[in-house]
Deep mutational scan, measured.
Amino acid sequence: MEVRTIKVFTTVDNINLHTQVVDMSMTYGQQFGPTYLDGADVTKIKPHNSHEGKTFYVLPNDDTLRVEAFEYYHTTDPSFLGRYMSALNHTKKWKYPQVNGLTSIKWADNNCYLATALLTLQQIELKFNPPALQDAYYRARAGEAANFCALILAYCNKTVGELGDVRETMSYLFQHANLDSCKRVLNVVCKTCGQQQTTLKGVEAVMYMGTLSYEQFKKGVQIPCTCGKQATKYLVQQESPFVMMSAPPAQYELKHGTFTCASEYTGNYQCGHYKHITSKETLYCIDGALLTKSSEYKGPITDVFYKENSYTTTIK
């Protein structure tokens, strides 16, 4: 009895394709271990004539594949690729409408935090270190965002349907971005203890939790000093293409032309909904596939993004 075979390709990165001759009487799992086709788990399936010449994702289970996976995804987590594939199996079914010149995501599976993050990423200057993220990001900007969303979920250790947080998501993504040249110098002034300067680099240099107003941050924000008295913390120097200011959701007025974009969060910790506000020729609110415009805006804002380049204080 002759062994019926077909020729397929296996890959971990969709760049390096490895030619395989597979036995049609055995499952993919018996031949390769966990195997995925377009995100779908085909591990328990036997090869079919229609699979001839198709590319299958496999887990990096030998040295060659491990090197290829690390170079593309910059992670050695053995569960990463499987999590990416199972997320992709959902995100490829989502709709990605162009809204006001940006790629958004039609609401499904509690994905409003991903839509808000995706919209924000198209408006701030950011370059990702893992080629996987950078490639998928370019495709997302062009309207094909399924891979990018699935990668975000995998890097953030999230599953489809789980509630997510924009600030946490951005923080994970910033860790995989090139923020080497970003720098922030802060000064804390206390009447009792004097003053202390701190220099922050990388992710810490672009994120701040405690106030939404970048102007206020430049002037000074009140913080408790270690001595128990009130101290003032203010920005001395900022070198970065953008800054992200966050605070627990509270009524906040966004003035046209003073910011790049913002995240609105309605609801409580267990259950809520994100919308995205962007400042173009007027203010726009993007909620999944829905767009509304207004000249002014007041609502429960939790993150505001500002364009920056270089700032030095005039406070002496």
Rank of each mutant, 00 (worst) to 15 (best):
P78D: 14
E2A: 12
T19S: 14
T116D: 06
L151M: 07
D165H: 01
Q237A: 14
C271W: 13
L186N: 05
T75V: 10
H176C: 07
L235M: 03
Q195R: 10
T226S: 15
P248S: 10
C225T: 01
V189Y: 10
A117H: 02
K44Q: 14
C271Q: 11
Q197P: 08
F259Y: 00
Y57L: 09
L290C: 14
Y311S: 08
S213N: 10
C285F: 10
L186K: 01
S171V: 13
R4P: 14
Q123N: 08
R167N: 05
Y234W: 09
L254I: 03
Y208K: 00
R4K: 13
T64R: 10
E125P: 11
L119T: 02
Y137S: 07
V206N: 00
G288S: 01
S171M: 13
M170F: 08
N147K: 13
G272T: 01
G33T: 04
L133S: 03
N89V: 14
Y155W: 05
A140S: 07
E264P: 02
A140P: 02
G39W: 07
A289L: 07
D23A: 11
G161P: 03
K93R: 13
M26Q: 13
K307C: 14
T43F: 10
D303T: 03
I152M: 10
D303E: 02
F305R: 00
N16P: 05
Y284M: 13
G210T: 01
V8A: 10
V221H: 09
F148G: 02
Y113N: 01
E204H: 12
D287S: 02
P241C: 06
P97T: 12
T159W: 09
I124D: 04
A132W: 05
K218Q: 06
T27D: 14
G39I: 07
V236E: 06
V206D: 02
C156G: 06
K233R: 14
T302I: 00
K233V: 12
S181T: 12
G164F: 02
E281Q: 06
G272R: 00
N100R: 09
D77M: 06
K201C: 10
S86T: 12
V12Q: 08
Q238F: 01
R167M: 00
T292G: 09
K255R: 12
T266C: 07
G267E: 15
A40Y: 14
A108M: 07
Y36G: 04
A40D: 15
A231N: 01
L118A: 03
N14Q: 13
E296Q: 13
A289N: 11
R184E: 04
Y73M: 04
T35W: 05
L200V: 13
M244S: 00
N111W: 03
T314N: 15
C225A: 01
Y138W: 14
P97C: 15
V21Y: 15
A247H: 07
N309A: 14
S79M: 15
F217E: 01
H256N: 09
V3D: 14
L200S: 10
N16L: 06
Y84W: 04
D63G: 08
V188G: 05
G220T: 03
I277E: 03
A231T: 02
T120I: 14
T314A: 13
A117T: 09
T43P: 05
N157W: 04
L133F: 04
W94V: 00
T64Q: 14
T159M: 12
N14I: 06
E253V: 09
V21R: 13
E68S: 07
T91Y: 02
Y234I: 11
H51Y: 06
T278H: 08
Y252Q: 09
Y73L: 03
N110S: 03
Y138I: 14
A117V: 12
A108D: 08
Y84V: 05
T314F: 14
K54M: 13
E168C: 07
H273N: 00
A87Y: 05
T19C: 09
T192F: 09
W107M: 04
G267Y: 09
Q175G: 08
K219Y: 06
V203M: 10
T192Q: 12
E253R: 08
G29Q: 08
E204R: 14
S240H: 01
L17P: 07
H48D: 14
Y284E: 11
E204C: 07
P300I: 15
A69N: 03
Q195T: 15
H176F: 12
C182S: 06
F70D: 07
R141I: 10
H276N: 06
A117S: 09
E68K: 08
T198A: 10
S181P: 06
L88I: 06
Y36F: 11
I223Y: 11
G220W: 01
Y274A: 06
G39Y: 10
A140H: 05
N157Y: 07
I315F: 15
V3N: 13
T198D: 08
S263Q: 03
R167A: 05
K93Y: 11
V8Y: 06
K95N: 09
Y234D: 02
E281P: 02
Y297I: 07
K229M: 14
A150W: 00
F174N: 01
G228D: 01
A247Y: 01
P60A: 11
Q20H: 14
A289H: 15
C271S: 10
Y265G: 05
F9L: 11
Y28E: 00
K218F: 03
P78W: 15
L37V: 09
